[in-house]
Design a protein around this nucleic acid. Sequence first.
RNA 1: CGGGGUGUAGCUCAGCUUGGUAGAGUACCUGCUUUGGGAGCAGGGUGCCGUAGGUUCGAAUCCUAUCGCCCCGACCA
Length: 436
Amino acid sequence: MRYSKYFIPTLKENPGEAQVVSHRLMLRAGMISQLSAGIYNWLPLGLKVLQKVSEIVRDELNKASAIEILMPTLQPVELWQESGRYDAYGAEMLRIKDRNNREYAYGPTAEEVVTDIFRKNIRSYKDMPKNLYNIQWKFRDETRPRFGLMRGREFLMKDAYSFDVDYEAAKKSYYRMFTAYLNIFERMGLKTIPMQADTGPIGGNLSHEFIVLAETGESQVYCHKDFLKTDAPQGVDFDSDLLPIYEKWTSLYAATDEVCKEEDIKKEDIITARGIEVGQVFYLGKKYSEKLKAEVLNDKGQPVTVEMGCYGIGVSRVVPAIIEASHDEHGIIWPESVAPFKAVVINLNQGVSETDKVSEEIYQKLLNAKVDVLYDDRNERAGVKFKDNDLIGIPYQIIVGKKGLENGGVVEFKTRKTGEKETLSVEEALNKIIGK
RNA sequence: CGGGGUGUAGCUCAGCUUGGUAGAGUACCUGCUUUGGGAGCAGGGUGCCGUAGGUUCGAAUCCUAUCGCCCCGACCA
């Protein structure tokens, strides 16, 4: 992509409305712009990151045998009346009437709709288990939206729902999602810790919040220090017994400020940190299947009400969470897996035939190698280009300048994360990118 | 929803106390110079001073209402 033909409206100054670092940086990097309270436009750079995050979620869920569907944003309120949540959900649910005065909800979540899909299509235990998910815009009419996308009213959420014939099977579904979540966040370059969460009226202990550790996180969390050196499992066979993985990750202490106990957090090896919740897994039992009569016949030919679980990831919230966990005073530092571009070619002397020629050549070779590359071909001074590119945080910069070309035909290879600059030949610089 | 703040140029903000021609920096446009860390000089204002009433000879400024946005709290992916 040529920067001169693209659309990245960066800001030199901090917008007044943004207080938290991720919000400020997303606005300044031209990723998003605010349309209304808690409602944002996704500009090209922001959209690319959102898509990369979505793709990782999708890929890992598919590996765990979840099946993607797409449910509408608008849901007839009759389903909510049937589940009993029409009144319970309150003012957070945005209600809309159509021209025939029929009432709809802009879905804040989709238990009712997905259960309806299940009950209308699945009749036998032989067709179980099933895990259906979608990545769809949700709306919750928060009384006070804040922190940019971290707590907007409209947000992109991945919500998965498992259906099993009995509790034992439901637990296995839970472990599958639990394990998939470890992999998902690891791939995004995030240090995430599952923490025991409140299960409310359902009871039991099968609910975990996935908390990203970030110095500027919104809430105080406590966890065993060994979590810092625990890596997500690799190459998991999702048909195997996942209980050991689950136990490994839940045996160590981890709790948010809301649920922790005074005596626990004072123990040795427990560290204090800041965190952001990016996902939650939850065993639902028969809460919705009972109300909505989602039943199948078991192997004895008897009808049983199915066991459900729900599993959310705030996809649009993950983006600022990554920024909170990965930035410096110059701007964003994207982990490679979610970066809007893998590399940027910065031509410091646009219009000078030699630098134009070499920059163009590097750009074309990277394109040919299927590298998602940005070419900063703007007619701007070097300083502007350095500042903008550090701000938008693309992992690798290949800097092409007159000086280097005259001085042995070299370019600079800069790693955004470390700030390290290496002087390399064009060939070497290309290999650094293509080889990765 | 309780408490506080704020709305003036694309952005950051001054002007309001004490009413009298709409401002600065930056961005943007033109020209010349410059060209490796947000350049210099010269020229250009792009504005329903959130909106609606009111007071006044005269309102960005005072009064009333209303809307938007931000922050703290309660609440939450």
